[in-house]
Design a protein around this nucleic acid. Structure first.
Lengths: 187, 187, 187, 187
DNA sequence: AAATAAGCGAGACGGTACGTCCTGTCTTAGC
DNA sequence: GCTAAGACAGGACGTACCGTCTCGCTTATTT
């Protein structure tokens, strides 16, 4: 019995936010700036999102829902490699997504609510996929039984996020191969 | 030929900054708040540091200069374990340092200048030590010859920083052991 | 289609400003102090006034709108005397207005925008009245035809403002009488 | 047993101050700016002057000491006209002096100490000369006996300062003539 | 069809931090 | 003892954004 939320406004906000992050980092993506660019009212943004970072995260999740892939025919190593390469590509592709993810990641360090969201909706699902692959590998005999699966996921993916954040080395396919080469989890 | 910088003021600022980060994250550590707590002038802070994060980093570096250890009698694995455990302890000890490092790390994601400082003065020296251990290990025959040393350092340490940032799992000695167990760099 | 300006806030600012000028001169009437005393936000003041002096001028204009008087039955000399005495009374009455006018007048010397405002909304209307009286006097034959009306207005009123500013002599009714006695404009 | 005050430094400060006032008004003539331009230390300025305005006034007095003229052969009217024209010339000549005087005058409105200085060392001597001329005129029979001499001085000179401050009309020789024409003090 | 309720743009407002400027005081060292 | 150099606390400046608050218009449902 009331007017429904305007989808048009919502999309305009998401696009404006990601654009602004791409141009000037998360600092540039203030509610004021997003509202101005999206042609909406600031109050509307406050109503639907807690912070600019939450808005960017929302955009991020919307833009990359189809990242969970099924490939039963691949070996565990190849499947993991596939997922890692996909992440690398995502982070380095057009810059937009990488910049947005880096911004949100950084902000999460000083915003517990955002961190929870990020872990729950971004990191969690991706970790679950990787953990699933490792467990499937154990069932198949391709992965050692005794390993700490959670730690293994960290060993495989943390280097990528780590370099994304600090920029002390490139995030590329060579890194993925090197990490897999140094991973002692395979049988 | 002029009044020298007040060391007292400087220390008060460092302490106030770290305390504030511990209490309310980097958001709480504004120059205004630091100045108020340290009993100094805001302008003085602007004069000596570029941002609150830079100030916190300064405090961090000052508080942990003696982290580079020599232990030639240890095996490469034990030496690396030692360094990793030391990092874990640092991050979990009183909470202060961990919170500060998390804050600075996060902020580095959206502050290139800070990132440079952080990589140069915090991450760099620690990575150099680890890389040195790995190379010494290669000379000793304890570490495989063909590995990518830089990537190896990432594989070993990134999981710790990763969990520090996202909090999706504990940063403890068990994690260190699990990571070392999954590290395929040893001969 | 938006929240209307708060008249309450506006009045509080005007009162606070005049009070502060009365207590400590225009130096004391900073936007910070006015905001603090009026219980408003500093930013709101910046939004509506260019400077504390402009705010005080606003208050001045608001407080003395009814100064233009009609008295067709008076002679030109008496009408001018009336206006001059009214100004004297205004400047010496409670001290508030005199102090405010002195402050604004002084400030106008180093603030072109304020000077324009002051001339346009304070000095101008009052000069126009006086000039009107003189011209009416010329039509009536009470004032010499050949005089420079603008200069005459200066001769009559400048001494009052001059003494207000420098305080080298009293601004009182005796001065008004003396000035009129020394004015050679009457036929 | 001590180093004497540096005359060189003093002159540099005076020149710098007047220059700065000429360029950007009294607002631009801060102790900081004067010190920087004069190549002296700020503290030295604090030691010798109370405020930038006092410094400018000092320069003003120094530059125009020779303005008191003797001319016994002139009529009272001509002598007064001479003094008034001299003032007009001073205020309009190169702009430097006029700007400085206007600035100091304005500042005097909100600085009692400066006002005292200004009245005592600038306005007072000039008023005394004019008053002296009027009294000499009374002795000679050129000036009416019954007039208020102080008020007369105001009537003659206030219009010049008034226009200088408000800029509502030109300060020129025509004004001087008009004022003298409207002055009813002559016998 | 009208009433109702929420969505929304516009903009005012108090609040807080920003980064800068100047003040007045101080400390140190050179002349 | 004058001076230059510069550190420091303090306070105002003008700006930006935040989060909240009226407003009044628009847009769907729901009686």
């Amino acid at each position: 019995m009331a007017r429904p939320r305007s989808e048009e406004t919502r999309r305009a906000a998401l696009i404006a936010a990601v654009d602004l992050v791409g141009e000037g980092g998360l600092v540039a993506a203030t509610f004021s700036a997003i509202a101005a660019r999206a042609g909406t009212s600031r109050v509307t943004l406050y109503k639907w999102w807690d912070s600019p970072a939450a808005l960017v995260l929302d955009a991020l999740l919307e833009g990359t829902t189809a990242s969970v892939t099924h490939a039963p025919e691949l070996s565990t190593r190849d499947a993991l490699a596939h997922q890692m390469h996909a992440l690398v590509e995502l982070l380095t592709d057009d810059g937009r997504t990488g910049a947005a993810l880096r911004a949100v990641t950084a902000q999460a360090g000083s915003d517990p609510a955002l961190r929870t969201e990020l872990v729950e909706h971004w990191l969690g699902p991706r970790r679950a996929v990787a953990a699933g692959l490792l467990q499937r590998g154990q069932a198949r005999g391709e992965v050692r039984e005794g390993i700490d699966v959670e730690a293994a996921v960290d060993v495989l993916f943390a280097p990528l996020y780590h370099r994304l954040l600090f920029g002390h080395g490139p995030v590329d396919d060579r890194l993925v191969d090197a990490v897999l080469d140094l991973f002692a989890g395979f049988a």
